[in-house]
Design a binder for these strands. Sequence first.
DNA 1: CCGGAAGTCAAACGTTCGTTTCAATCATAC
DNA 2: GTATGATTGAAACGAACGTTTGACTTCCGG
Lengths: 234, 234
Amino acid sequence: MASETKDRILDVAERLFADRGYPATSLRDITAEAAVNLASVNYHFGAKESLLAALLERRFAPLNRRRLELLDEIEVEVGAGRPAVEEVLRAFLAPPFEMQQKWGASGRTFLRLVGRLHAETNDEHRATYLRHFEEVRRRFTSALHRALPHLEATDVHWRMMFLMGSMAFAMVEGLTPRPGGPPPRDPDEVLDALLCFAAAGVAAPSPARVPIDAGRPDRPGFVVGEEAPAARGR
Amino acid sequence: MASETKDRILDVAERLFADRGYPATSLRDITAEAAVNLASVNYHFGAKESLLAALLERRFAPLNRRRLELLDEIEVEVGAGRPAVEEVLRAFLAPPFEMQQKWGASGRTFLRLVGRLHAETNDEHRATYLRHFEEVRRRFTSALHRALPHLEATDVHWRMMFLMGSMAFAMVEGLTPRPGGPPPRDPDEVLDALLCFAAAGVAAPSPARVPIDAGRPDRPGFVVGEEAPAARGR
DNA sequence: CCGGAAGTCAAACGTTCGTTTCAATCATAC
DNA sequence: GTATGATTGAAACGAACGTTTGACTTCCGG
């Protein structure tokens, strides 16, 4: 099954897509660097788009399996109780970082690619990509809501978004050395820093939703709300 | 100066770049939709790359001017004292959202484009883009460090990264309606939610850096470091 | 009315793209 | 050894790309 050629193509494509982006990477770039024939991509994968899909499948399947596995453990442990926010976040954020250690440089490359795909919004690639992600997002959002029952569902959704944004940025920026940016760190440290930031952000008191007719103070949004002084119509 | 044609090209290009990404948008797409001749892009802007640069210039110049202006106000106000974290964050995050109200649909489009460019890492576009951003990042990072003097510089840098990630994601995701995602919200609400999340995250206690010889507990990273076990800022 | 700059237009330029074709090669079972 | 299916190879396909060209309008100061 896993022929030598096929794997070499996947490895090189992963790196080039991560470095230059999907549309900016040509099959000729890939096949030249992998030292295989141009036609072999279409032979083994059918089309460029399917190559991307195969590439995502290879990494995402075990990654998301691991995430859900950790979440399962948490849910078994707490039963009907409230899971701890930090535990849920750790189950979500740790696997990509573990992965990079297990898979070495190519795991790191993949993380950069993922960070990129979050913004690479050709709707077709996005569908390819999101298919892998949807169940994970749904289950973690719901676990997070159980951990933070005083928040409204829409707030949990948004914080999940912000979390994903931080994660994506940490992956693409934190793992690509850049002049002027923070020095690249040990992945474990990045994970700790991210968890720390994310846990505080996700568990923040809910934003005060001042009713529109209440004369808005100069700077709303930071009045601690906890549970909605005024239930926001919605 | 600002000819009819030139503006139409800029407007359409902004939208298409935001929708499909820069490399995936052809000049023929742009000129067809703008109902101008294909050659006029090269006539007015020289090349596709310069079109992107002009497009960024048009929006970023006033946007970042506004950010720095708000930051200046804060720094004048507090003098040698500590600025408030929320104020600094607001100065950073509010202008893009204000902009979208002032510029209407095309402001919103631009925000999507910006969110995208954060990941669009062809090094040349990135240079084009980062040039507009570098001073802002530097000054806000330093203001943030003054607001949170107990944090190490490297932690502040990283949290600035996470913040930018949340912002980028909020822009590209929060403003593009997606099935299954959170319902699109009023921009003011997004800003409030983002500020709330970001303020808590940025001001979180610094991650515990356990010395390597200390037998690491099973789950490090949430031991509250620094000061006050529960004094989460506010 | 005219001359010339500014802008538009259709057409073509040379490249590069993803994909296809088909003969050559390889491995394996008979 | 030879037939057979899987893989590789070199070459070409048509389409799309960014850019350039040169003739054609449009406009305006003299």
